[in-house]
Computed example of a mutant assay.
Amino acid sequence: MATPEERLAALGLELPEVVKPLAAYTPTVRTGDHVYVSGQVPLVDGAPAGTGKVGAEVTPERAAELARICALNGIAAVKAEVGELSAVRRVVKLVGFVASDPSFSGQPQVINGASELIGEVFGEAGVHARSAVGVAALPLDVPVEVEMIVEVG
């Protein structure tokens, strides 16, 4: 059975450096068997990979790609906290925020970009509860932000 790191490699993905906090918080907090991952935005090499509102300046398809980047950043934060991704027993919950044009209602499809990557990397342990929420704006004018809770052991 492949490890999450091997699955990432098979997908042609490398974990980025953990995104530095944009304000007064930490990327992860571990309490007991759970790691809470702060909201991850689609930063690549320290810069937003896209900006704008979904349904206006950003297509839903592009927003789903950006949600995938958010999830990859979240996975990097988990690895930095626990050492090996095989320590993840379960991705418990994923919450996605989508900066949306007022007429846009496809937030679940956008956040599928993150959920699908989590499933590809963690397999059955990646099946999670989820919320997809439309919001007026996000930090740095990014279109999407993702946070998650994982169980480790």
Rank of each mutant, 00 (worst) to 15 (best):
L43Q: 04
Q40H: 04
L22S: 13
G39A: 09
G32C: 08
G50K: 01
T31V: 15
V29D: 14
D45Y: 02
G39H: 05
E17L: 14
V35R: 02
G32P: 05
G12L: 07
A9T: 10
G12Q: 09
G46E: 06
Y25W: 14
L8G: 01
G39D: 05
V35Q: 01
E14W: 02
V18Y: 01
G50S: 06
G52K: 12
R30T: 08
P48T: 05
K20H: 12
E17M: 07
E14M: 09
V35K: 02
T31N: 15
A24Y: 14
G50T: 01
L15P: 03
G50M: 03
P48M: 02
V29M: 13
G32I: 04
D33M: 12
P16M: 11
Y36K: 12
H34F: 14
L11I: 05
R7L: 08
D45E: 13
P27Q: 12
L8W: 01
L22R: 13
P27D: 12
V29Y: 14
P27L: 13
Y36Q: 11
P48V: 04
L8K: 00
Y25M: 09
G52N: 11
A24P: 05
L8Y: 00
R30G: 07
V18A: 04
T28S: 06
V44D: 01
V44N: 00
T51P: 01
L43Y: 03
P48W: 01
L22I: 13
T28G: 05
T31Y: 15
E17H: 11
P21D: 08
A49T: 00
K20G: 05
R7F: 03
G50R: 02
L11T: 06
A24L: 15
E17I: 08
A47N: 12
L8I: 03
E6V: 00
V19T: 13
P16D: 11
P27G: 11
S38I: 03
G52W: 10
V35M: 02
A10W: 07
A47R: 14
L8D: 01
V35A: 00
P16C: 11
V44W: 00
R7P: 02
A9R: 13
P42Y: 06
E6F: 02
A10C: 03
G46T: 04
P48C: 06
V44L: 07
T28Y: 07
A49Q: 03
K20Y: 07
P48G: 02
A24Q: 15
T26L: 15
T51D: 04
V44R: 11
S38L: 07
P48D: 00
R30H: 03
Y25D: 06
Y25H: 13
R30P: 03
Y25G: 07
Y25C: 08
V35I: 07
V18S: 04
A24G: 12
P21K: 10
E14K: 13
R7S: 10
V18N: 06
G32W: 08
T26V: 15
E17C: 04
P27I: 12
A47V: 15
T26M: 14
G50E: 02
G32T: 08
R30E: 11
V19W: 00
S38D: 12
Y36T: 13
V19E: 11
L15E: 06
L43H: 04
V37Y: 03
V29W: 12
D33E: 15
